[in-house]
Amino acid sequence: MLSITEVWEYELEGLKLGGVFSWPLPVFVTLCGGAACLPAWRRLGFFSLAMGMAVAVWNAFPATGNHVYLECFLCLICALLDPVRSAEQQLLTRSVRWIGCVIMFFAGVQKLVHGYYTNGLMPSYLFQEPRFGRIFGWLLPASEAQRLHSYNGLDGSGPYLVSAPALLLASNAVWIFEIALAVALFVASTRRAAVFAGIVFVVLVESGAREIMFGVLFVSVLLMFLSTDANRFFVPIAAVVCVIVLLTQLGWLPVELH
């Protein structure tokens, strides 16, 4: 469902930017998605869907969103394994859980190694963007906010370094939380709490970043860590989000997603 929405959204975005709508890929992935829902066609459907998503990766390369690679990989796993068989279902669940841990871990590590979070530079630079400004504005004193607003982000502007303790704390909390969450999701005793903390974190991050499709996909991955089949209840929510995304791309809803 997410992959289908992703491809339609990409084509609609291109149309909005003055390009032409290319029908073959959206129709192909929609048919593959339909086939993947039918027991007899499930594996072929998922394999074809993975191929369709590989084309989507290629079409948008190098600007391809990371979640498109993820969708492609997950579709391949779904094509390989048969969840009707208990052993393979277990394998599928474990694989998706491992993938979730890897993503969270490297998201935190990358933030640490590039050096824009330990000193609060990244949030203070993002502050210039209205969607982030609304969030980080709470963490900055008025004088600091005014100073950051006066920069244009071009050569010679700055310094973006800030001394506001709340912003520095939040900036460091992000990468620490991501790495800690990867570990907490891995350890069985902390898994349940980590899932809920992770969902809250994703919702908070996406309220600024607005990477809606990544957010929905990752919440779904997080729900795989629960012993109950929580994704069954998440499907209708994800479906509503997908419809909202597509209606917004069509200009039928007055919402700004990106």
Partner: peptide
């Protein structure tokens, strides 16, 4: 980009 999961790691 390129599935390294470093979104928002740098400006």
């Amino acid at each position: 980009k390129l599935a390294g999961w470093g979104m928002y790691a740098t400006p």
